[in-house]
Amino acid sequence: MSELLTAGLDVGSSAIKVVVVEDGGARARVLGQAVERIRRREAARVAQDVFESVLRDAGVEEGDLAYTATTGEGEIVPFRTGHFYGMTTHARGAVFLCPEARAILDVGALHTRAVLMDARAKVLSYRMTSQCASGSGQFLENIARYLGVTLDEIGSLSQEADAPEVCSSICAVLAETDVINMVSRGISVQNILRGIHDSMAGRYVKLLLSAGARGTVLVTGGLAADPGLVAALVTAAEQFSDRGKLDIRSDERSVLAGALGAALWGAFRARRLEASGVTP
């Protein structure tokens, strides 16, 4: 292949995302992609397997790659060419998926970040949720387990709610206690989930506004694939619109934003290194 080929691996705390990209510039094209949950396996092994699988599906040999970039906990990937920090890659992936986005809300398993960037995907500033797990995907995953629903069901069930229950948005322990009380009181799963989505969304919108975000915001990270959360975010953005207008969006490939951004920055570095005659 004559086009520049690069790969991005986003090693998260619960899933590994891999993307292979052709060109990596203005005409970048995704040749292959995958998301694989780690599920108590060795993360490095999962990364290797899913990487090889994506290459195979894309018809690309590892030797054809000009740059293999990692992000997240990608330090565990020994075959990487380089590593980029999570905010840097999510910003780049977001600008690729949604060129008008000037902020992202990266909702991962362990924490959430509001990141502002410019049109070149240069990170300008960020705000992050505090240590508490109530702002994370891991928390939502725990609640789903208590309620006996799968992760894939959360979004659609939440959107069926007719009378959402108010839930603590400050502390995961209090929120879990709230959920147990709700179950005891016979509140429907749909209304419980929407209540949790609403509490998380309210917190995230405040995070975005306090970071200075205005205009188009792309949701990235694992929870970007949860339509219930995205819908709650849109509603919360309207509720807080007196403090600033936010146009919350998601993309079907938002979950891959980190890996995508890593692959695109990898292409940028590959070209720069080639121009300077350096072989990484």
Binding site: G82, H83, F84, Y85, M87, T88, K122, V123, W265, F268, R269
Partner: peptide, 14 residues
């Protein structure tokens, strides 16, 4: 880690 990571990125990219 965050500070060093973003510093390395800023050098490599900007």
């Amino acid at each position: 880690r965050e500070q060093a990571g973003t510093f390395a990125d800023s050098i490599k990219l900007w």
